[in-house]
Design a protein around this nucleic acid. Sequence first.
DNA 1: CCAAACAATTTTAAGCTTGAAATTTCTCCC
DNA 2: GGGAGAAATTTCAAGCTTAAAATTGTTTGG
Lengths: 174, 174
Amino acid sequence: MMGEDKFDTSPEWVDGETKALEAPGDHRAELRLWLRLLTCSTLVESEIRRRLREEFDSTLPRFDLMAQLERAPDGMVLGEVSKRMMVSPGNITVLVERLTESGHISRTTLPTDRRVQVIALTPFGRAEFEKMAATHADWISELFAGVSPQDSSVLMDELAKLKRSIIAALARNS
Amino acid sequence: MMGEDKFDTSPEWVDGETKALEAPGDHRAELRLWLRLLTCSTLVESEIRRRLREEFDSTLPRFDLMAQLERAPDGMVLGEVSKRMMVSPGNITVLVERLTESGHISRTTLPTDRRVQVIALTPFGRAEFEKMAATHADWISELFAGVSPQDSSVLMDELAKLKRSIIAALARNS
DNA sequence: CCAAACAATTTTAAGCTTGAAATTTCTCCC
DNA sequence: GGGAGAAATTTCAAGCTTAAAATTGTTTGG
């Protein structure tokens, strides 16, 4: 899905008022937008992964899981973690195993329903996470440094619209 | 890295002219922006992956590799494919094996430099890709349907700024 | 010429990810 | 009470991804 430059040499089809003149099924503009979005997110994501590994010997999924738990001092049910992280339940199982082994999180079976596993940050895990989170925020800030507060605000709004569009489309299709 | 909603209940820190009053090291705005961007791209990406699997029994990496080759009628060197797709070289090796087995691409060792492998779409691979690409474009169009051409244009510009910011930061750090 | 450096690719080991099937536990209704 | 079905989680098989080491081939300076 990479390779935004794939389209960089095609003619600009954007003239603002010829929408009606576009060939039917011409989706160049949306494709270009999607590829640019994907490029941005891939660049940031792979840099963050690299730094987490180098500076903390950790990974993005582990960081994300701990980030979820930080907001839930009383712990969280596995299924809830899975939904919030938008990953499959089987995925969580493996992550939780490793993070439990390394002492970052604790897991408890709910006494009232023995199907349910609750996980929470240990004090050690919380301390480690706080260090990572502060550095992580600095990294993002550094990568986004060239975007002015005004642009940032516009981007937030426009991405909100895009998010609504995506969610609406997904809802229609189900 | 998921969980944009993680911040949805925090107070809005954005008032447009109090940047100077923010606590030092306060990167909430950038983090929120990054999480929103990531949410959008994850939603689209996982939907596209799902559909590629269901409708074409294919995967995103395979589609991307073929998309690169479509633009190179004379084929492309493996290293070039790896760079364009922004994935590691070892990754390409595996993808190329599968796509060669399934008859979608051909591979040739360059006679003048036997280290170099050139891959290209076969006629079958090209035909298959064209079907997939047309449908893929429709999917993206559908997911982005709620974004007006004006918004789309603004997003393109703002994402271009963000992309420059990221690339500049990466360049500084190397 | 030829050894050292370099380049392209593959291999390896480890981890992430998914969907589907299996397992365990609970709930609810007859 | 007991069994059907639902819910939470785990297991499984397959594929993707990476960094680092290894392999193979080429170039180049002495």
